[in-house]
């Protein structure tokens, strides 16, 4: 049978083979029908063997048929005229005129650009890290040792080679310190991944922006200054910020940063801040001495702050969207946007 399978060259061959072995009166089918005459003690084993044989033969035949079909389709396509792309005169003009949708940047790109411009204007380097991180970059270098409960706080997508999809842009902190340290300021916007079920407020793939500033006398007062300046520029309104204690292993002290709500209208319930006047905006803090040390920076000489905020969340606030799934939906009607 194996030999016959190898000899199949056309679809007609395949059909003949199918009839011979697998069809209504094919050999395998007949043997299966004959099971009832076999001694009951052997019936189960023989039946299982035959069923496996039938399935395997079907699969092999299917693959051969598929290859033949593909080859035939390819042969047909070979009759198509060759489009000589090496010839610069072979050119189709970009469609234009009324009714043609112009191109555009993804809304997330537009928000990232805005953030980048603000921080670049304040002298920050705009860094850009990979999406696959080692366990060291994502956890160990960030003061989360193996047994640290913080590893539970994030649902990590682990890869078959032991690395992971970065759960936070903080995974690039160690690299930034080694590349630019000890005194620098940089942000690193990028895509991060969390193993979560999707709903209107949760995506497994979203964007964050990491920021770091390290120097000889960088203080909490400086952190507040930069965040206030950046948020004021992002929202184009004077923003107040406040810090609350927050726990992130890679900073000490760690803060949750709230921004004054720009959406509140007097006298109405505000769905964004639930009328509290404050919107939780990001986690931040003074970089933990262990994190500095891992980055090759002496924590007795240098100190600094780090922050990480959600670009996707910022985009939702900016565009007044209540479902984060639109960004990765590939829905062009959404992505092309409209005018207000």
């Amino acid at each position: 049978m194996e030999k016959e399978l190898k000899a199949l060259k056309t679809l007609a061959d395949c059909q003949a083979f199918h009839a011979k072995y697998l069809g209504k009166s094919g050999e395998i089918t007949k043997q299966l029908q004959g099971l009832k005459d076999i001694e009951p003690s052997k019936r189960a084993t023989r039946g299982a063997e035959l069923n496996i044989l039938r399935r395997e033969t079907e699969e092999k035949l299917f693959k051969i048929q598929h290859d033949i079909e593909a080859a035939e389709a390819n042969a047909k396509l070979m009759n198509d005229p060759l489009i000589d792309v090496t010839n610069p005169l072979t050119y189709t003009a970009r469609p234009s005129g009324p009714g043609v949708t112009p191109g555009g940047l993804h809304p997330i790109t537009q928000v990232i650009r805005e953030v980048e411009e603000i921080f670049a204007g304040m002298g920050f380097i705009i860094e850009d890290g990979p999406e696959i991180a080692t366990e060291y970059e994502c956890f160990d270098a960030l003061n989360c040792p193996q047994e640290h409960p913080a590893r539970d706080m994030q649902d990590t997508f682990w890869l078959s080679d032991g690395r992971c999809l970065r759960t936070q842009t903080s995974a690039w902190q160690n690299h930034m310190m080694k590349k630019y340290g000890p005194e620098f300021r940089a942000i690193c916007p990028g895509r991060v991944f969390r193993n979560e079920a999707l709903d209107a407020r949760h995506e497994n793939t979203f964007f964050q922006c990491e920021g770091m500033m390290i120097g000889k006398d960088i203080s909490i007062a400086n952190l507040i200054y930069f965040m206030k300046a950046a948020l004021t520029a992002v929202f184009k309104k004077d923003i107040n910020i406040r810090l609350r204690p927050g726990y992130f292993p890679f900073v000490e002290p760690g803060f949750e940063l709230d921004a004054s709500c720009v959406f509140c209208k007097s006298g109405e319930h505000c769905p964004v801040c639930k009328s509290s006047g404050w919107v939780e905006f990001c986690g931040c803090g003074m970089i933990h001495p262990n994190v500095l040390r891992e980055g090759g920076i002496d924590p007795t000489k240098y100190q600094g702050f780090a922050f990480g905020f959600g670009i996707t969340r910022l985009a939702m606030l900016k565009y007044d969207l209540n479902d984060c799934r639109w960004f990765n939906s590939g829905n062009l009607e959404f992505l092309q946007g409209g005018t207000k």
Binding site: V100, G103, H106, E131, F327, N328, Q336
Partner: peptide, 15 residues
């Protein structure tokens, strides 16, 4: 260049 000169729409897809 892609968006403004060539009129293409940027999209994001999963990794």
């Amino acid at each position: 260049a892609l968006a403004n000169v060539h009129g293409l729409q940027e999209v994001h897809t999963y990794i």
